[in-house]
Write a protein that binds this DNA or RNA. Structure first.
Lengths: 344, 344
DNA sequence: TTGTATGCGTTATCAG
DNA sequence: CTGATAACGCATACAA
């Protein structure tokens, strides 16, 4: 009988049943190879010993499979991150992988420590949403890695089709008769997938011969700054384009919401005088006074695609290969029409 | 020289330096006990072998300390959960604990599986935000556990002071001259800490001799339902209390936001005709057309308190005790005044 | 179908 | 200050 507060091991079960611990191991990993009678005997023992499951630690050491995946994310405050990670963690339902999660918050030192820990725990793969480390460094880890919506030159990746998202937004604004198109975005890493929104926006405007006005700025660190930024942009736009119907394509929903709030409080008509389209389609988009038309990222699809790409790599690694061909998945977003633009 | 794609072990370093692996272990765990010369020699070896850190798996098996903590949460869609978990994960900066996270989504089977996995990985403690399992069951695990904002009879816990939060909200509405106070809440588990908001609200109204009107309903599963619920409540209130200044105390910010949006779109004056106070103070509260006064949960404090309580228990367990006295921490929230009530 | 022997990478104990 | 040896809990190749 094992000590009270400790865990029941295969050895304990073996002693109780007078089998060897090998047989006990087989009971769990290949039950077919035991006689029904033996199985029965072991089952009784499990009952008697109050067996609550074996130790993965021993298993990990013995066969090297940890069933652990590491997630590196900046933080959970943007709905995009929390929703994506939510959907990734949900794959546990049909999948045996467990996730160790780190918030790195743009701090490279923390990210390095996190990676060191993850390799120490022998995680079988990495899902990287944070963008402080170049993909080159990630590739050096010689570990299955999938990066999501970030610079991805040397790693497998999943991104939204930011370009086509921007095109569909711009085309909607044009179709609704906007005379000037304004795009508000933040300047990030030049290779960030989100930068393609600028390209898609500009290309579409050029193609239609309509004026494209860009407002690029650094990502506002707090809410007051974002608010100030909205004021600046609006003042500028009203000065530059009085009496024109302006269509705003904004790089995130929070910004779109602030814009809508501001316009509504000034008594401007949406979508008659102004139209607004956001990006992400986070919950705020539908909760705004005037619900906001937005480019919806297919987050669920991004999560499952990322897991598939990672599993593929993990399988390859188990077969001894230490590099798989780079695959870059691009997920199509959808334009969700709400009241901040004309009905479709 | 170890094989190319494999990990460098203490044995490899020992072979290279002609020390024993015991000495290598000591180099990492008690460097003071080595001569500077030996340290030097080992450092050179680490360099030469491109050592990238040892295996926690071996360490786990040898000394039983996994430095792993399990988190069980319903999901990440409510800002309360994602923010709280964000702040918990952030403790990694000053702390050596790593977190395995599960989203259980109210599914008891999933939660059981998750717990089985977590014990299999020999996590040293559990942080439980999900509320499908009674605290009695959690206590049976004979593992350090802290429950957060949920039924907590048999476990250590951290809650917001829901009662005092409700009192301060009700008092603010009364001080602002509201003639009728309406509280909208959802019916949860009767022992859920959030239920104390109802109590605090009612007690305050009774004390001031003001009518307290309660709207309790099941938690709306989707956004359309929430919206419909807002309509019903508003219709009812306008029918029951025409020409009265009504103060709403609402159990979450999203609901408060919808209420505010609805009132604004109907041209009602806030805070002249109606006042609204939300709960949580999630980002939506300040992003609404009329920024919403809200009871702010001190999430950062809740996170750090939870970790402290858990560490205390873990320390006790390491000393062989298998039960620590139950501690229930209660964190004081703060009323954040915004434009949906009169200025303070 | 079952058992024996060995190894996984680290720490702990006890000697030297 | 350093080393030999035995654990930790499980899986696997090989033997019976």
């Amino acid at each position: 009988m094992p000590p009270k507060n400790s865990h029941v091991t295969f050895q304990d079960i073996a002693d109780y049943t007078h089998f060897s611990k090998t047989t006990i191991s087989r009971y769990f990993n290949a039950p077919q190879t035991l006689t029904p009678a033996s199985r029965q005997r072991i089952e009784e023992a499990l009952e008697a010993l109050h067996y609550r499951g074996g130790s993965k630690v021993g298993r990990m050491l013995a066969n090297g499979q940890t069933e652990l995946i590491g997630i590196l994310t900046p933080q959970f405050f943007f709905p995009f991150y929390s929703h994506l990670i939510n959907d990734i963690l949900d794959t546990f339902r049909d999948n045996h992988y467990k996730f160790i999660v780190f918030t790195c918050n743009g701090d490279e030192a923390v990210e390095q420590r996190a990676i060191a820990e993850l390799t120490a725990y022998r995680v079988e793969g990495l899902l990287v949403l944070s963008h402080t480390l170049p993909s080159r460094k990630l590739a050096d880890l010689k570990l299955p890695v999938v990066t999501i919506e970030r610079e991805n030159e040397y790693t497998c990746s999943v991104d939204s089709n930011n370009y086509s998202g921007a095109v569909s937004a711009a085309e909607k604004l044009l179709a609704d008769g906007c005379e000037v198109l304004v795009h508000i975005n933040s300047t990030e890493h030049p290779q960030a997938p989100g930068m393609k929104r600028i390209q898609g926006f500009q290309d579409t405007c050029r193609q239609h011969g309509v004026l494209a006005r860009l407002f690029l700025h650094e990502y506002p660190q707090d809410f007051a700054l974002t608010r100030a930024r909205v004021e600046e942009v609006l003042a500028q736009v009203e000065a530059e384009f009085p009496d024109k119907k302006v269509g705003f394509f904004v790089s995130n929903d929070t910004f779109a919401q602030l814009l809508v709030n501001r316009l509504v409080r000034e008594g401007r008509q949406i979508p008659a005088e102004f139209e607004v389209i956001g990006f992400d389609d986070s919950p705020v988009a539908q909760q705004t006074v005037v619900p906001v038309t937005a480019v919806r990222q297919n987050i669920r699809m991004m999560a499952s695609t990322a897991m598939h790409l990672l599993e593929r790599q993990i399988a390859a690694y188990r077969c001894g290969k230490d590099a798989t061909p780079l695959q870059h998945a691009v997920i199509e977003p959808a334009l969700i029409i709400r009241e901040s633009t004309l009905p479709s």
